[in-house]
């Protein structure tokens, strides 16, 4: 179980990082969202993976660790606030700068070949 879990966390992290490294704002927002899933799962697992333990007092013999849960719960909500802020920032940048590049301008190192193919995608 643990192996499967960490593979999922790793895949989510990799996908999130890759998207964060893209040059357009929307990809970065999607990447950040994915990364925050990974981070939440990562944090949550610090209480170990409990399949059978009870979450509510009086409902079982042993209990799941409440501390990482409380931390992750706040992390989810704060994560949402962050994603919302970033996406609105992206909108504002698009409105003020007229493009959606993360740097505000077209990256200087974009391949010429790719530039000439622009619009044919």
């Amino acid at each position: 179980m643990e192996t499967v879990y960490v593979i999922c966390v790793g895949v989510l992290t990799s996908c999130g990082i890759f998207l964060c490294l893209r040059g357009r704002t929307f990809s970065v927002v999607v990447g950040l969202t994915m990364l925050s899933y990974a981070v939440n799962l990562f944090l949550f697992s610090s209480g170990r993976l409990n399949l059978k333990d009870a979450a509510i007092l009086g409902m079982g013999e042993s209990y799941a660790d409440p501390l990482p849960q409380a931390l992750t719960l706040t992390a989810i909500v704060i994560g949402f606030a962050m994603i919302a802020f970033v996406v609105i920032l992206a909108l504002r940048a698009r409105a003020d700068l007229g493009n959606d590049f993360v740097d505000g301008t077209e990256p200087p190192d974009t391949d010429k070949l790719l530039k000439s193919n622009r619009g044919k995608v």
Binding site: V29, D109, L114
Partner: peptide, 19 residues
């Protein structure tokens, strides 16, 4: 919902631009 709303104002597609 938020991302869909945002997408309305952003380009729907990205061109392939990474070398």
């Amino acid at each position: 919902i938020l991302l869909m709303l945002a997408l309305f104002f952003l380009p729907q597609k990205t061109a392939a631009e990474s070398s």
